[in-house]
Nucleic acid binder design. Structure first.
Lengths: 240, 240
DNA sequence: TGTACATCAGTGAACGCGCGTTCACTGATGTAC
DNA sequence: TGTACATCAGTGAACGCGCGTTCACTGATGTAC
């Protein structure tokens, strides 16, 4: 997002303005609880006139694309960073990644909806473009866990060994796209884990669990994460 | 939705018009892939002038509320109807309910987003109003499965027996709201199952699994549903 | 270091459009005697 | 059964507002000699 230090002053201020436009758009989305974004409002908050924004984005859709790509990157960064504390503890890494996913969504429900909710109309993902690339990066963080679990031979016990042939084909396809080796068992376990994680996360982020006490939500999330880990064959975290 | 047969002709045509307005609004939502709804568009499609709609709905938010309530009802009806074929087979009922939930969302992603996505701005759920009532009815379909599983003493084996005290308090609160007996173990198992089901369902409904073949998605959903059932302690379906 | 030119950010006016909503009114449908 | 009245659906004009986007232009910032 920030320009390289070797950039000229003009390039740096330009990059800063782009950042400010995107940050302002996000603030407005958070304030309104929507996924909409109006050039007029952004300009008003920034203290400029609406046409000024066209120096930075060709139209509203281009801004939207940038916001979506950024959101993918940001989520992926958070999930990736979560595992740094205990790189050798698969169980701890899974819990940390799940918490990171959940916390990010809870903190930024609008951005979460932007990338993983009902697709916003008028926005069409560029073919093979930066969006799917960012998405892949985000998912690969999760998948590496399950690949390692397979290597540790704990994966899928006792339920997840059988993989449907059609799913296997999909796993091979993804392996080629991502240019990694992604065994079908790991692929399937990852998707199951992701789905369960995503379900709790979106229900909570969109406020559909607000009738529960925060402490109860925490406890429920904890047991869901543990449950997934046990079922998928991820080991217990090493700490007590 | 339809007026009682004893209603006068005027009341019947009025009810029919209300239905037509809502159906037209849904068609437009489906066409645009949005959750937005414009009085002007509805009127144009129906061949009337926009002010005519104010005879039926005080404003846009009232129409939105009606659409949300209807969507809850419709989803609840589908899930409830799914279990009629084998009322004594807990495993089969779970699979059918999960399939019904999934199919409804896949067929109507916009309505699904309307009730379970990022809340639409401008719409504030009426306190203790028809919305939460409809939501409760929808969820109670699922919860009855897990209450029965507890009675059959299969629930939660081997992972789900421990329930955090805060979650227990929540379960008691829900029991009073719904005026049913909802043991904490059943409550927790239901929420875990619902979260996992909801996660797959929303990812698929919003097109985030479109990179998989439909057959692979079906297989993956099947194994996810089986997995949840095994973990939650629901029995295998009786048929082979 | 200073001057001439090119580049770029931002302005202000304008265009075309669409929205939700109100209001007084017309014409048709139902109701009461 | 027929007439007088009440009720209601729908119209058309209007209000106020906001949006995205274009365009010619000004003034400031950077660049080349």
């Amino acid at each position: 997002m920030t320009a390289a230090p070797s950039a000229t002053r003009r390039e740096r201020t330009r990059a800063a303005t782009i950042d400010e436009i995107k940050a302002t758009a996000l603030d407005l989305m958070r304030g309104a609880g929507t996924v909409d974004v109006r050039f007029t409002d952004i300009a008003r908050v920034m203290g400029v006139t609406p046409p000024a924004l066209y120096r930075y984005f060709a139209d509203r859709d281009e801004l939207l694309t940038a916001l979506i790509t950024d959101a993918y990157d940001d989520l992926a960064r958070h999930v990736a960073a979560s595992g740094a504390a205990a790189p050798d503890d698969l169980g701890a890494r899974w819990e940390a990644a799940a918490q990171a996913y959940r916390e990010w969504a809870h903190r930024e429900p609008e951005r979460f909806a932007l990338i993983l909710g009902l697709p916003v109309p008028g926005y069409v993902a560029p073919e093979e473009g930066p969006t799917s690339e960012a998405a892949s990066r985000a998912l690969s963080q999760l998948s590496s866990l399950f690949v390692e679990a397979l290597h540790a031979d704990t994966l899928g016990a006792p339920y997840l060994r059988e993989v449907d042939p059609t799913v296997e084909v999909c796993a091979h396809g993804k392996s080629e796209d991502l240019e990694v080796t992604l065994p079908a068992e790991s692929f399937q376990a990852m998707l199951h884990a992701w789905a369960a994680l995503h379900g709790f996360t979106s229900l909570e982020a969109y406020g559909h669990l607000d009738w529960m006490e925060p402490a109860a939500r925490d406890a429920l999330f904890g047991s869901q994460v543990t449950l997934i880990a046990r079922v998928a064959g991820l080991p217990e975290p090493l700490r007590a």
